[in-house]
């Protein structure tokens, strides 16, 4: 593992962070009354779209040479289709988990679903970009000592921190501070976003500091 790898990882992660900030500030230039809290749903869409877009872009630019070596067009198409299906499935799966956690079943169904979408954008999309629709590889990355590169390591950290952020975001909901961001699912989406950003920023640093201890199986 070279320092240049870590640098590349850092830049690509910073680009993802930048995309999150972009989704906060750019729409307010075009839309008059845009704010994260009031037009939360719009922001959710923007944010997930921009994060997905940047991830795809990164995938095409940085790792295109790796994946496109030995595949025909039809193989690529099925791959993309599979990715889309996986993404949708993960949205529904997360939605079900939220309902199991106590989200209302019928009311606020759009809010809940968009929360599932943004969380999928933070977690499933990077996985799909990096690992492709390959469940075995996913399981390998998310089991102990299963990572084989710094990219996977970073993916593991950001995914877990996004989930933990969303989980912690649920805690302020019962408090009686009467703040606008305490409404379901705003605090959770904000928590997930903070977790995602924190994971993106911290993972290159963590890898850098632990670069002596880290040994990956393949290289």
């Amino acid at each position: 593992m070279k320092d240049t790898d870590i640098k590349r990882l850092l830049y690509s992660n910073l680009l993802c962070v930048f995309s999150v900030f972009l989704s906060v500030f750019v729409p307010s230039l075009f839309l008059d009354d845009f704010s994260i809290l009031e037009t939360h749903l719009a922001w959710l869409c923007m944010c997930s779209a921009s994060v997905t877009g940047v991830n795809l872009l990164l995938h095409l630019v940085v790792k295109a040479n790796v994946s496109s070596r030995r595949s025909s067009l039809s193989h690529k198409v099925t791959r993309v289709l599979k990715c889309c299906i996986y993404f949708l499935l993960s949205c529904f799966f997360l939605h079900i988990i939220f309902v199991l956690y106590g989200a209302p079943l019928i009311e606020l169904v759009l809010e809940t679903f968009l929360f599932a979408v943004i969380l999928s954008a933070f977690t499933t999309v990077p996985c799909l970009c990096l690992l492709g629709p390959n469940l075995k590889a996913w399981l390998r990355v998310f089991s102990r000592n299963g990572v084989t590169s710094i990219w996977e390591n970073s993916l593991q950290i950001t995914t877990i921190s996004s989930f933990i952020g969303a989980w912690l975001g649920a805690f302020p909901i019962p408090l009686d501070w009467e703040r606008p961001w305490q409404v379901w699912p705003i605090s959770c989406t904000l928590g997930a976003t903070f977790g995602y950003v924190a994971g993106l920023v911290s993972s290159p640093l963590w890898i850098y500091w632990n670069r002596k201890q880290l040994t990956y199986k393949s290289n």
Binding site: I97, L100, Y101, G102, W167, A170, I173, P174, L175, D176
Partner: peptide, 21 residues
Amino acid sequence: ASSFVEEEHQTWYFLVNTLCL
């Protein structure tokens, strides 16, 4: 926190759910 005392059931439901996951 008084709110968490009032809504203690939420804490336990949340913990049990997380345990199941």
